[in-house]
Design a protein around this nucleic acid. Structure first.
Lengths: 149, 149
DNA sequence: GCTTGACTTAAAGTTCACTTTAGGTTGTAC
DNA sequence: GTACAACCTAAAGTGAACTTTAAGTCAAGC
């Protein structure tokens, strides 16, 4: 199966211009054209696009992705480089997820906080609350210096 | 304890210019100044900054953060709005984490793939491998249309 | 054969979130 | 009292990642 830039873009949930931009930046060295110059995305190219999407979503820059793709085109001599790139990207994602979890904990606290305030009708409900009145796992978010959390 | 913009910035691991920029954009409505116009960050302001940092790190725009801060300054009349904002931000983070997990799975596959190629000295090692030769949890990443994964 | 929608390019424009620059003021240390 | 680092503002500049525009080409349906 062969897709045009518009069809490929739809599958990836991006605009055709984005794919053309990626092409211009050298992210799609695998891409072939028809005799009249039209981009032809094959099924295996869609796999490449998914990989690019993965790197993009995990925070790699266009330049970084281009470097990886260049390595991929080079062949076996770059296996070590590619392994290193994947390894550091994985480490980065693990870190990002840890940070995300911390942020989620804080947001969960805020949801509880505003839900409690909503139920009481006012944020002043917390003024008379002692630290022990807060659910245990939320206590770490409470700033004694701050009235309105 | 009171901090200058430079001290506050150091605690948050940002530059002083960033905090001045946030101030200019209206993200720091709580912030007070000394008689000579110098920004004074109190301990409870550092809590506000942590909240702003949390929203920023979870992908909220400067404009979105400003809106939230404005609600915070308004008082009890905006409790519902703030609860809604925190709720949707939490949902967004849950989604982001799910996506991150999928990306991590893919990167783990790629690490295994390149490690295997490295051990063999060539990517052609996969040419003779049947689907059953791949670890089970990695099989979903294999594209039959694609030689070099 | 002609319309129409999708494709092509190069180049300019946009948005976001800072960052830098220029010119000036403040406050602590000697 | 003077040096010097850190503060101040307004405004211009930066970099990343697209997005839009303009002018033209291609291919399927009538």
């Amino acid at each position: 199966m062969i897709y045009t830039v518009g069809e490929a873009a739809k599958q990836l949930n991006v605009t055709p211009s984005t794919l053309r931009y990626y092409d211009k930046e050298g992210l799609l060295p695998f891409l072939e054209r028809s005799g009249s110059g039209i981009r032809m995305f094959r099924d295996e190219d869609m796999s490449w696009l998914k990989m690019i999407d993965c790197l993009k979503k995990t925070g790699m820059s266009i330049k970084g992705i281009k470097h990886f793709m260049d390595c991929c085109m080079e062949g076996d001599s770059t296996i070590d480089d590619r392994l290193a790139i994947m390894g550091s990207q994985r480490d980065s994602v693990v870190q990002q997820m840890q940070e995300m979890q911390e942020m989620l904990d804080m947001l969960n606290f805020k949801c509880w906080y505003y839900q409690t305030a909503k139920d009481a009708g006012t944020c002043t409900v917390f003024d008379t609350m002692a630290l022990e009145d807060f659910p245990e796992h939320y206590r770490k978010f409470i700033d004694p210096a701050k009235k309105n959390q």
